[in-house]
């Protein structure tokens, strides 16, 4: 009997841990989405500019002048990076969801045993 109880406790712990992980992943996902959208707006703005535009980049407390081509490349690269990151987090989310599903099944099985 105590064996089953212990297993139940272990599974419950695992379950809540996994749920915390999932929540963290989802927060990370939405943060990435915000960054992605912001960078897309910046890129769209760059599309309207040309080489003559004076562009500055805020680095710490100062504004540094920047090359149009360089700035645009930076943002494009950043968008690519964020896209990869989003994909990475999304696979993690599905993995975690699968793990939660498994733990839930385990809990249900143990609970059924305890009922008997």
């Amino acid at each position: 009997m105590s064996d089953i109880k212990q297993e139940f406790e272990k599974l419950s712990m695992e379950f809540s841990n996994q749920q915390n992980n999932l929540n963290e992943l989802i927060t990370a996902r939405s943060q990435l989405e915000t960054q992605y959208q912001e960078n897309k707006i910046v890129l769209a703005e760059f599309e309207k500019l040309n080489d003559d535009s004076k562009i500055y980049k805020l680095t710490g407390p100062i504004l540094l002048p920047q090359d149009y081509a360089e700035a645009k490349m930076n943002v494009t690269k950043r968008i690519e990076f964020i896209e990869d990151e989003i994909k990475r987090v999304e696979t993690k989310v599905t993995d975690e969801e699968k793990r939660i599903e498994k733990t839930r099944d385990g809990i249900l099985a143990v609970r059924a045993k305890m009922g008997n």
């Binding site: 707006i41 910046v42 703005e45 562009i55 980049k57």
Partner: peptide
């Protein structure tokens, strides 16, 4: 005008 277009970039 220096316009903040996001992610730390400003454009005149």
């Amino acid at each position: 005008y220096l316009v903040d277009i996001g992610t730390g970039y400003f454009v005149e």
